[in-house]
Design a binder for these strands. Structure first.
Lengths: 213, 213, 213, 213
DNA sequence: TATGAATGAGCATTCATTCAT
DNA sequence: AATGAATGAATGCTCATTCAT
């Protein structure tokens, strides 16, 4: 869940890595601020304080830069969330930790999460020729699916389609950055509490004395 | 003399209206297919089988065209959903009808819904100078909020923040087009059933003999 | 407005002539208001209250319309000025009448004169393929040249190059519309008085007891 | 007119400056040849032998380029004329030097002067958002007004409205480029002599034994 | 006669990318 | 490693003109 690629961090010099990191961060901030399709190489370079050409020197093209942004933020978010989730011992607890850690990450690094959502929903993925959106989709859903399956087996969750429920939860979470940008006064703690309760109710076993219409 | 057909005074604007509709439809399909920020006037014109200039002839600018797409799809979806919701007599039933009609609309006109979501999440709203994203946000949430408030007063819904719950439901629904495009084999009926059940559980009153962690 | 051309006024119907006149007037007003190179056929048509296509129906192209504007205004101004000049019996008096009648025309029909100057100085002439700017130039200068030659022969004017002096006088007059637009508070009567005096001094015979430096 | 050989530490911006100068010169020549409103970025680029995009790289927009053309030519002309005027000790001599140096500049750099007049009279000024035509107007007239006022105080000039006389002189001078382009065989030396004499007569004190009609 | 739908060329501008230094 | 000059494609838009009705 945590490390994504270790492929060639050795083949790059330290300064090379530092520059790439700097550029990726500038890209994140630029995308978060002006939106994905307005984040040109020039604007990213300006924010990084470097020339346009240097970005092309360190990245094969815009696609690689965007892909790196996605990978970096996703990996970083996963590294942030993983210990909080792992600290829980039950699937239900882990689900709550998943929600909590995800929103905490958004609170801590709003630009990163906004940038990620911008790319994922703003057409950025289709600009990445080597990326399979379906594969990325499955990768996003898999942890939740595994969590749900475990919880169903232990009886903590009711019987539902784990993939659909994973999409439901991702949908709820992915709506948060947009909600935050549209309503800046939104209380993220309250939001988290409401979401957690709602998801809890949606997943927990149905009491035996319940009639469905 | 002038009028040729029996349409008389409307025959003048009939062609105009037809063309506008045709262009809006071409825009919808183009946006749904290639994404909002790749849907140039040229591509839309090509899909409509007309020249670039003709779009500018019928629409003052791209902003007006996109605004028309948003308005058209939104209005059309509302007209599609409204009777299905109104047919229900209870807030809980209306909520289920809201979900069902929304997904039915997506099934019937997937391109329209994909295009709308592309524009709303893909930075399109900020390209519309006269549009207030926050106002649009409230407009989207309002029907759900009213529905929830009514349900809480009637005791059909538990006590939750109606705005947050509205955002939750919208988040779940807005994730559907993406899910459909990423997983074409997705069974929309099953999806709808699962969503309905989940939202039902998330909103209904908590049985008295329940302990919260 | 006086009949301008009689070459084919017979071949055009009355309504045809009326339309052409209306369009020419709309062109004059549009050019005077927004400048020559912003005066599109569309804007001219809008001001005339007719469709774009109708202008093309009545004029072979924009060039013919502009040429007609030039011809109309020039002829109209000449018809306005001619009797005032003819009423004077001496070349010096006619020169003063030339200046006075020209500025009176500007005061009476500022839009026409502004439009004419816009076209002549704003590159409009070079848009007219069939027009020889040099010939137009000579046509503009000829009356003044004849006037000066007559005055020199009668001893009312000193000995100067009549063509250059004609250009001088035209230069002074053609600067008036720009001056009026740049300084709206300009007193045209005072302007006329100063110009008349200056031109009078510049053209009259030098007193015998005059030393040149 | 700009110092050229100083590169060294300025060598970084030297290329930049050289390109800007080259582009400005290409713009001057293009405007002088085809007129202001036909001088597109493409044509200017073609004349400069560079791509369209490079102009946008060096100038923020067409407005900045045109403004630079105006500033460059105006400053250049002023630098050319100033020493010739300053060499004269009397207002009347300075006025003659003003005329002479201005026409000498036109003879030396006809394209520049034609371009400037094209922009000023061809609607170019109104395309420059930050420019106040009235202020530019006053700036053009001021030196002449000051010169006239000094001459009136010293008794070298008669009593006339200095602003109107400044407009008269500018009108006479501004008519020269058009005259040159319409009549290529025009003898500029003779033109200058005639103009100088005419302006001299128009401004000098009236001999006491003069009768006005 | 008159309309307005429709076209295609041209415009200024932005952008990702390449390349010599 | 890094710069910034340079290109060419693409975009939204305006416009003169044509044409069916």
């Amino acid at each position: 869940m945590v490390p994504v690629t270790e492929h060639d961090s050795q083949s790059r010099s330290f300064i090379e890595e530092a520059r790439r990191t700097q550029i990726v961060h500038a890209a994140v901030e630029t995308i978060a601020e002006v939106g994905y399709h307005r984040a040109s190489m020039g604007r990213i370079g300006t924010r990084a304080g470097i020339s346009r050409g240097l970005i092309s020197y360190h990245f094969a093209g815009k696609a690689e830069l965007i892909a790196q942004v996605v990978t970096t933020v996703y990996t970083d978010a996963a590294a942030f969330m993983a210990p909080m989730i792992a600290a829980e011992t039950t699937p239900a607890g882990q689900l709550r930790a998943y929600l909590r850690s995800n929103l905490e990450y958004m609170r801590a690094y709003p630009a990163r999460m906004i940038a990620l959502v911008e790319i994922l929903t703003g057409g950025g993925l289709s600009d990445l020729p080597d990326t399979d959106p379906a594969a990325f989709d499955r990768q996003m859903l898999l942890p939740l699916e595994q969590l749900f399956t475990a919880g169903q087996e232990s009886g903590e969750f009711r019987d539902f389609d784990v993939t659909v429920m994973a999409r439901i939860v991702r949908g709820v979470i992915d709506a948060v950055p947009t909600a935050l940008s549209r309503d800046p006064g939104l209380d993220i703690d309250r939001y988290l509490r409401e979401i957690t309760t709602a998801v809890d109710h949606a997943t927990r076993p149905v009491p035996s004395t319940t009639e469905e219409p």
